[in-house]
Simulated scan of single mutants.
Amino acid sequence: MIDLGLSKLALIGVVALIVVGPERLPKVARMAGTLFGRAQRYLNEVKSEVSREIELEELRKMQKDMQDTASNFEQSFAKDVSEVQSDLKSAWSDPTHDGVSADPLREPPNPEQIAVKAKDFRRKKLARTSAIPSWYKRHNGYRTHVISGAARVAKYRPAGAARKSPVSFY
């Protein structure tokens, strides 16, 4: 921009005073000020309009990118769903898919299989509900079943040491 120092402004004021005259100088100065203010407002409006247009173009571009991404995702999702549906239809129509019988009620499991499943279920349930992992218990020799002191005494008491009538502590 134009660099106006104090000396240049003073020179312009002296020339304006000589050219315009002292009686009309305040009117001309007011008019010049209003014109200068209007010019500044007009320039600011133009700048803001240009920046809005640039932002609008960026938003349009971003919207287009998002729509492209959404359509690509929708197409890939639809493709995956159709693949899964075709796999399910083929598995449903084939009664012995991967060697597994389609109807498990035709061949009941034998008792050994039931016992193995029950044992695995109990083992897995204990592993899920236990606070200490089973591998740690096996490694360090932790007891998996804890009994109270009174139950331990009753369990390991010799047969001859059992008393006939309990004696009161008091």
Rank of each mutant, 00 (worst) to 15 (best):
D3S: 02
L6T: 12
K8H: 03
L11T: 01
I12Y: 06
A16Q: 03
V19C: 15
V19G: 00
V20M: 02
P22E: 03
V28Y: 07
A29E: 04
A29L: 05
M31N: 12
T34K: 03
L35T: 03
L35C: 07
G37K: 05
Q40A: 06
N44V: 08
N44K: 14
N44Q: 15
V46N: 04
S48Q: 06
S51N: 06
E53K: 02
E55M: 00
E57V: 08
L59A: 07
Q63H: 15
Q63C: 08
D65I: 04
D65R: 13
M66Y: 02
D68F: 11
D68S: 07
T69W: 05
Q75D: 14
S76G: 11
K79Y: 13
V81P: 08
E83R: 12
V84Y: 08
V84Q: 12
D87C: 15
K89W: 01
K89L: 10
K89S: 02
A91S: 10
D94R: 05
D94E: 06
D94C: 03
D98I: 01
G99E: 11
G99N: 12
P104W: 15
L105H: 11
R106V: 04
R106T: 10
E107R: 15
P108F: 08
P108Q: 00
P109A: 01
P111M: 09
E112P: 07
Q113H: 06
A115L: 14
V116H: 02
A118N: 12
K119T: 02
K119A: 14
F121G: 05
K125S: 08
L126V: 00
I132Y: 13
I132E: 11
Y136I: 15
Y136W: 13
H139T: 04
G141A: 00
G141I: 01
R143Y: 02
T144M: 13
V146M: 09
G149D: 08
G149W: 00
R152L: 02
R152G: 00
R152I: 04
K155S: 12
Y156W: 02
R157W: 08
S168G: 01
Y170F: 14
Y170K: 05
